[in-house]
Nucleic acid binder design. Sequence first.
DNA 1: CACTAGGGGTAGGGTTGA
DNA 2: TTCAACCCTACCCCTAGT
Lengths: 208, 208
Amino acid sequence: MGVPKQKWTAEEEAALKAGVVKHGAGKWRTILTDREFSSILSMRSNVDLKDKWRNINVTEIWGSRHNAKLAFKYNLPPPKIDNNHMALSTLVQRDKEVADFKPLAVSGGTCPNSMENTSRLQDFQLDNLIFESITKLKEPRGSDRESIAAYIEVLYLNSFTYGPILFYTNTQKLIGKPTEAYGGKWKINEDGVWFCIAEMEQYIRLRS
Amino acid sequence: MGVPKQKWTAEEEAALKAGVVKHGAGKWRTILTDREFSSILSMRSNVDLKDKWRNINVTEIWGSRHNAKLAFKYNLPPPKIDNNHMALSTLVQRDKEVADFKPLAVSGGTCPNSMENTSRLQDFQLDNLIFESITKLKEPRGSDRESIAAYIEVLYLNSFTYGPILFYTNTQKLIGKPTEAYGGKWKINEDGVWFCIAEMEQYIRLRS
DNA sequence: CACTAGGGGTAGGGTTGA
DNA sequence: TTCAACCCTACCCCTAGT
């Protein structure tokens, strides 16, 4: 009635995505009570999370929930398999697998010590980069680092004018480090911007 | 994509208006499944009904949605209070009241037996007459018969060259009588054209 | 009872094509 | 450019199942 419709902010959406990566889709209450996200998502209910997640997925596959319903009704195959975007049906089916993502074998160096976080806007961008790469790629147990790198590179690097992506292994567990709302998830060092995928103990260098 | 945009016909619009009078604005699915309207509105979705209703109202108040938004933005009062059209804000606020319209006290004779329905075109015209009169007049619990008569008379009778309006009380419940899409809602007798307002069990004689 | 999945519905902002 | 028709998103309700 009086509630004028709370649009989801980029920050909230990033937190939701990060929460799904960390806890898995369907663990809405868990995501909501996770200290890492609770302050950001304090205006949202578990049902809101569920609905938003539904919107995100269904939109990326079918364009809208309405289209998704029609497609189901007429038993149509998912569109949008082209243009570098993997159909998100893979995402929906792979929710648990992505959530259970195990640390990969080391092939980089060591995690650089942090300096300082930058603006939130960039935070969202990086969050979305990682989220998209690990959810939209086909690999059944999540994507390996090379795939993620290629994905980001092809889709984003040109426009963002980032340098080539290097991978890095995190030797210290930084999750929960209370430097930020996304504590310890990414940082800027002398040699570039580094992004940590929670639960993976992996760093990606996004910008040199 | 290939769908070239379905303009609303007069028939559909009349059915929508009648549906709002019967069930109330906001009851889009209810209107859509009502047998009285379902065949006419079969090409429309509940969302289509909502959108069309918005267009009808907003256009009559502000001239366009764009103007309405600007007015909201700058907190302007509704214009067009003149020229015999009540601001539709009253309508929006009074949806439920109009829908809950109770039968009025008797002051006419008895319902004449039906003869035959005439063309659809005239049906729309009459439908719109009634709709406009009961929605645009100010009375908080719907309009009494005299107001409706005066409204129709002032706005339409001259151009339609109808005679003076007489009211009539319906002694039989005719709603749902399957003589027409708008079953039993209006008829022509020897003494004129009679219009039944659904849920009101009232007849109006529109033409002698 | 608490929560989730998933169907369905509505309001309102935004988009588009004639 | 305008605006009627259409789309998308947020929020809501409900029920079944766990």
